[in-house]
Structure formats: C-alpha cells, structure tokens
Design a protein around this nucleic acid. Structure first.
Lengths: 246, 246
DNA sequence: GCAAAAGTGTTGGCGGTACACCCATGT
DNA sequence: ACATGGGTGTACCGCCAACACTTTTGC
C-alpha cells in the first residue's frame, strides 16, 4: 500500500490519476443521539456531495479512500470498508456537471473534459468520532465541509443520495458485527449512550433490558465507576471498550 | 440499460471501451454433487482465468457483466450480482501479461498497451444451470471455455483465485436468502438433490431431517409425484419451485 | 413518598441441532 | 426378512422479544 500525500488538482496531477474511476466516502459520525454524514458543498451551488477523490495510477484503491478521509478529517485509517461500486452509465446527471465547474478555470478544457467524463465510483464507508477529527477541510471544488444530520439530507449531487442509502443499509445489516460503539462514541459512555447509537443506526427503538444483556454478554465492555449527577434516578455505570486484542 | 452485442476487440473497438476497468464473472454451475466454475484457458499457456470483459463507454457496468455471461454461455441475465471491486495496484502480476499477449498481433502496440495497463475489476457472480447453457465460447484471448470443479482449481491468472474465493464466501453467507436451487437444479429434483447442492456450497454435511423441514417451511417448493426406480428404499418425492410471484 | 431512570429476572416463541422413530421398496 | 434410504417426531439449546420487578436518586 503506497501512500500519497494530498495535492491540488492540476493538469500535471491529472496525468497521474486514473481517469473515469473515483472513490466516494460515506463518513458517519455521531453526537447526542443523531447520526451525521460528512458532506461538502459545491462552491456557490447549494448542492452537496460526498467527500470523494481520485486514484493515483500507482495507488491501491483502498488507499485512495483512506487518503480522502485523511484529507477531509485528518484521521488516519480507522475502520474503512468498500461496500458497493456504482457503474451505471447515467449515474452522473450531465446537467449538474456545469455547476460543478463554474468556479474552475474555464480556459483550460483539459480540466473540464477530465471532470465531466463518465465516472464509475466505488463507495467506502467509515465510522469516526466527530471529536477526534481535526479541522474539516473542503476540497478544491467545495466551499465548506460539514457534518450534516443523516435524517435531514440537503440536495445532493448525482446519485449521492442513493450511495448514502446503500451505505446505511450496509451498516444496518452489519451493526451487530461492527465496532460501532468503539468508533463513534467517546472513551467512556453509559449503556444508554450505546443504545441510543444503535437506535440511531437502526432507526427503531430497542428494548433496554435485552440490549443491556446482549452487550454485556459480548464481553467487549468493561464496567467502570458510576456516573454522578445525571438526575433524580439511579446513577448509571460508565463503560469503556476492552483494549484491542493483539 | 443499453445492450450491446458482442464484437471482437480491435483498435476501433478499444476506443469505445472504458480503459482500465473490467468486469470478471464468477459463474457457478452444479452437477452430480459438484460445484463448477466457468473458466477460460489463455491460449497455449496452461493458465486459466475468469470470464471477463470490458465496459463500453455508454453501457451500464451491470450490463457489461450480463453481456459477458451471455457471450460465454448464451444465457440471458439470470441472477447476477456484484460482490466486490478489486482495486489494488499490484493485483495483476506484470509477469503474466506477456503470456496473455503472445498470441496477439505484436506489431500493433496500441492493443498491447491497452491490455497491459493497470486494471481495476468489479467481480460479479452468477448461478446458472449447466444444462441450460448454449455451447461455451472462449473469448479472443482464450483457447477453451470449460466448467472446472471448484474444488480442484487449476493455475489461475492474476488474483482470480482470490476473486473466486471472495465470491464463494459471498455465496455461503447468502445461501439461505438466494434461489440457489432454482438457479442451479433442473426443474424437478428430490430433496436429497437440493441438500447435496447446499452441502456443496457450504462445504459441510447438513442434517437430513432438519434440512427437509427448513425447506418445506420456506413455502417455495411444491411437492409432486414420487420418483420411482431409485433403488431398494422408499421412493422420494419430486419437487419443483413455485412459479415466481408477480 | 414519589417519579424517573437504571439494573436484573422471568417467560415464551422461534430457529437450529441432534437423534430417535416409522415407512416404503428391491433384493 | 432385511438392509437402505425417505419422511416425520421429539427434546434440547441459544437468541430474542416482551414485560415485571427491584434499586437508586433528586425533588
């Protein structure tokens, strides 16, 4: 796996990239009971898109996805996995690409031709701790990079809405086998916190008693001290995840 | 979905193809208790590879996979689904490409350059009835196209062994949710036939009694007459799958 | 004391596994 | 009759959903 550092796109850089194939990352974060997706706003258009990028000719595709994550969030390769490749001919609405290019140097048609060509994209998804991210950085085509609640998605470019839905579907199917808590929660948390997270992912309420037993039986958690000052009720335990097995 | 008919590769045709991205199909068949994979032998090399193909610039990627299936087997789009995209920089062993090209027109370097470039490939898998296939047709790079038992794979090109293993893994995980019997068995079959198929996929023995109950409970089968002349024992029922729900 | 939230217990259903028991048939 | 394989019954276990009960805490 060869790592390549971030660079602005330019005609010279474009030469080093694989044409027509991109990676798009569905980066999920969590805070206060809500799931968030990291999105970029295309300069001045009000259209949002997934953080994506291109693949260098001598770079593994997985690395390209990791590089995108690093460039936007500063995070180094947390849990990141490919979930689907989107290859329909008409997946990029041709009416949207001109908007994407409005802020670009119009006189160099190489850039324009490169960006409006047909693209196949491979979707990756990552679960990250919002507080562990560095400052969010938009890419050269975007004006801002923000955490957007996954329940209230804005107008999205191309088929990015479908890509997000596919990723969420993938996450829901695997929620019991993935370290979702470890990736999305702070170091210590209550069982209620963990349950709210699972409920946010699954989009439905879970039984408190059964959820508690299931989590404890997994033997991935260690129980710490009780959390004080949480109100007029029994103080809940604080948990943390076991250190990783080597 | 735009359909495109088969053509030989030529410099003119190559212009119409997306460079650097291929589809490879893991096409599985079944007969007498054994799973088979459809493979092609590269002309004169003794190296085998998956049936693959390229994507026309105006063609959906899923269609390209369906076209590959059709070209090799004559079958029209049975159950066919994408399972993973293989994008490592070093996935195609550069030492193997010269062998692949030995039988090609060496004086036209465009063909050579096109075929030895870095490729990302998307893997599809299909379950087909061997008897329903037309005559098997090798592609321009291959001398033969045959059903090879999945347990005794020959020397395979590039990372095709890994691709097959990934597909089999995918199939094992989904065997209970896929119409494996409907795709791989003849119209009528005994419960034992169906069980042998599942055992071949899972690579382990199943309990006869429990398997029978599970299949009947699914309500996908209808029981027909008994099969006669099967030996000194009770005659088994013949089953068929219910006609598809509309 | 009372409400609210946390922790634990109990029950029943369902799916999977293991294995026992009959049934039909050709020799 | 008997061996062989097909069909069905029963018991057990683990997982999950539903819900009851007890404990702690601030008001």
């Amino acid at each position: 796996m060869k790592k390549i550092t971030s660079e602005q796109w330019s005609p010279e850089v474009l030469e080093k990239l694989i044409p027509g194939h991109s990676v798009d990352c569905v980066i999920l974060g969590y805070r206060n009971g809500n799931l968030y997706v990291l999105l970029l706003e295309w300069k001045g258009t009000g259209i949002w898109g997934l953080p994506g990028g291109f693949i260098y000719r001598d770079e593994d595709m997985d690395c390209a996805a990791g590089r995108v994550l690093k460039e936007r969030t500063g995070l180094d390769y947390p849990f990141l996995s490919q979930f689907h490749t989107f290859g329909d001919y008409g997946r990029r609405d041709p009416a949207q690409t001109p908007q994407l290019l409005e802020t670009w140097d119009a006189e160099d048609t190489r850039l324009r031709d490169w960006i409006i060509q047909r693209f196949i994209t491979t979707g990756y998804f990552a679960l990250v701790n919002i507080d562990a991210c560095g400052p969010l950085k938009p890419d050269p085509l975007s004006s801002q990079c923000s955490w957007i609640p996954s329940r209230t998605l804005p107008l999205l470019a191309f088929d990015h809405k479908e890509i997000i839905h596919t990723a969420m579907e993938h996450l829901r199917r695997q929620v019991n086998y993935l370290p979702v808590g470890e990736s999305l929660l702070p170091e210590t948390f209550t069982m209620k916190d963990l349950q709210l997270l699972h409920e946010a992912i699954l989009g439905k309420k879970l039984d408190r008693a059964n959820f508690q037993r299931k989590m404890l039986k997994s033997e991935l958690l260690i129980r710490g001290a009780r959390k004080t000052g949480t109100g007029p009720h029994k103080a809940p335990y604080l948990y943390r995840f076991l250190p990783e097995k080597q």
